[in-house]
Design a protein around this nucleic acid. Sequence first.
DNA 1: CGTTGACCTTCCCATGATGGCAAGGTCTAG
DNA 2: CTAGACCTTGCCATCATGGGAAGGTCAACG
Lengths: 147, 147
Amino acid sequence: MNIGAVAKASGVSAKMIRHYEQIGLIGHSPRTEAGYRQYQERDLHTLRFIRSARDLGFSLEQIRQLLSLWYDGERSSAEVKQLAESHLSDLDKRIQALITMRDALVSLSESCCGDNRPDCPILEGLAGHVPASSSPPQLSKQKAQGV
Amino acid sequence: MNIGAVAKASGVSAKMIRHYEQIGLIGHSPRTEAGYRQYQERDLHTLRFIRSARDLGFSLEQIRQLLSLWYDGERSSAEVKQLAESHLSDLDKRIQALITMRDALVSLSESCCGDNRPDCPILEGLAGHVPASSSPPQLSKQKAQGV
DNA sequence: CGTTGACCTTCCCATGATGGCAAGGTCTAG
DNA sequence: CTAGACCTTGCCATCATGGGAAGGTCAACG
């Protein structure tokens, strides 16, 4: 398989495959005489693995570790789980941070009537004159993931 | 005020203040003969505004618009609100994306006992052999993971 | 055989917001 | 006068990804 084919089949762009090779996340593939990279089924599996891990938000460095655990028949699942849990707590932090922003912005936005007058509690809020919050912090739809 | 003082007072690093000046987010400050940037109260307000907007997750481009609305006495609050709502929907998308990741990862992680054996549903999941989900799709606290 | 178009190669640059470091100038208190 | 805190500019790094240029290769079609 040429790089375009694995790219399509794995969902990882050709550009990225070359990049992953360059940073040593995947090995150097053999080349044809003309210099074209050649891939096997096995490489496809690896790329799909990487793709899935990216979809779960793992960093390339974490994926490097995951791959080495994947290849290591001696690994303990605890090591993998530990990596996953650590990423999980990172995700939770990021979610919390975004929700905090969201809630703050919602409360500013709600206090702005959005008409054609220039008075705007949103701008005032940003400027530091916090508007008298009419409603207490709304933990709306997708609220609290207990961090 | 020198740059260090406004930096401390505004919560925006000196580095960033220079950067904001360079990209035209804030104006060029006057300089002393020695070339030191000089700031006024007014600049401090602007930087605090920027800092608050960054804390709410607005991009520098959005902040550029917010600032110009802020400076514009003729603005309609509707314009501001529209910007806020648009950012809000972006935040919601990002939150949803993270939650989707989180839920997927939680369900993988839960199915991994994390002992010293090498069998690991997390790795298998990443490899594409989705583990027989012992528990039906957890619509946990926050909605589904329609992956 | 020749051309066309799809594919491949490498290399460089851009993103967005921020930090770090280096080499050098300035200011102030002791 | 000197030490140390501060300022200046400029370059590089992050992280994962995309864009594009300049050029080589390959397969199919006429």
